[in-house]
């Protein structure tokens, strides 16, 4: 018995190691490629011994508009995260803290908004923004990201709110604070730690989005994701710079994810596990 158990444990470890290699390999392979010369990247069979070069990163950062793409991605992700939080925190409080007539209608509507396909929303707003002359602006993309990410944020914050006891606010209100004052001084400070995973999740989803920037951005507002996609379309691609750009687009997110790993996993799982 112990012998067969040992074998099964070794087998399990082996499978797990293979799964981890499969998971990591595409990313590590691209890291390797990003330090190769462009002509070595497209060489077949691939070379595993090469002198690493930083040219690709230098090219990506200085000789192409990728720095401005990076800034645009940042502006849009920060802007939509800010707007989502600004709207979602009071909304979650108003919906999940009180009982009112249309409560179930409001929550179902929010769930529906979460399930909507972005492309179906993009068509009307493309026409609207075109008529309002808002194409090629940051604000149009920020507004669309906010529409798509707001339902998730309200839903998640609501989940945390349910766990905060009402008594704190009630005590403050008996002491003469208004409802709004209690919200600002009692509820928000209690919520603040749970807002971290939600903000990061919103930031990541907005930074990673392709559809809305692709449709709404112009030369001045292109994001990294659109930049990467356009890159592939070119006839003669500078593969090295593409690899470097792909890394530059992912690294901030990966660093963010590693730093707040525990919070992030909480954020990802809260949607499903809270109920």
């Amino acid at each position: 018995m112990p012998y067969s158990r040992k074998i099964s444990k070794i087998l399990k470890d082996l499978v797990l190691i293979m799964v981890l290699i499969f998971t990591l390999f595409p990313i590590l392979w691209t890291v390797t490629l990003s330090f190769k010369q462009s002509r070595d990247i497209v060489k077949y069979p691939p070379s595993f011994l090469f002198t690493p070069t930083f040219d690709n990163y230098v090219n990506a950062l200085y000789n192409s508009p990728f720095l401005s793409y990076f800034i645009n991605s940042g502006i849009i992700a920060l802007g939509s995260t800010f707007l989502v939080l600004l709207l979602a925190i009071p909304a979650a409080y108003g919906i999940y803290r009180f009982n009112f007539k249309l409560k179930s209608f409001v929550t179902v509507f929010i769930l529906f908004s979460r399930m909507v396909l972005p492309v179906a929303v993009a068509i009307p707003f493309f026409v609207v923004f075109k008529e309002l002359n808002l194409l090629n602006t940051h604000i149009s993309i920020i507004l669309m990201e906010t529409i798509m990410l707001l339902p998730l944020a309200i839903w998640l914050i609501g989940g945390y709110l349910v766990m905060v006891p009402k008594e704190f606010e009630e005590a403050a209100m008996i002491d003469g604070t208004t409802r709004f004052g209690a919200f600002l001084r009692i509820v928000i400070p209690i919520l603040i730690t749970s807002l971290i995973p939600i903000s990061i999740l919103t930031f990541i989803f907005s930074w990673n989005d392709l559809l809305f920037p692709l449709i709404l951005s112009g030369p001045q507002t292109k994001t990294l994701t659109v930049g990467i996609l356009n890159y592939i379309g070119y006839e003669s691609v500078d593969w090295g710079a593409l690899c470097a750009t792909v890394m530059i687009a992912s690294v901030p997110i990966i660093i963010l994810a590693v730093i707040v790993q525990k919070q992030l996993i909480k954020g990802f799982s809260a949607e499903v596990l809270k109920g």
């Binding site: 990591l24 392979w29 497209v42 990673n208 994701t225 687009a249 992912s250 997110i253 990966i254 992030l264």
Partner: peptide, 27 residues
Amino acid sequence: SIFLLPMVIPPVVSGTIWGNFIYNPSY
């Protein structure tokens, strides 16, 4: 933390990585 990596990188990046550097028929 290893499993977290694929799901946080932009999907357009994973498409680029797989399409151009893994699946590409010539290299």
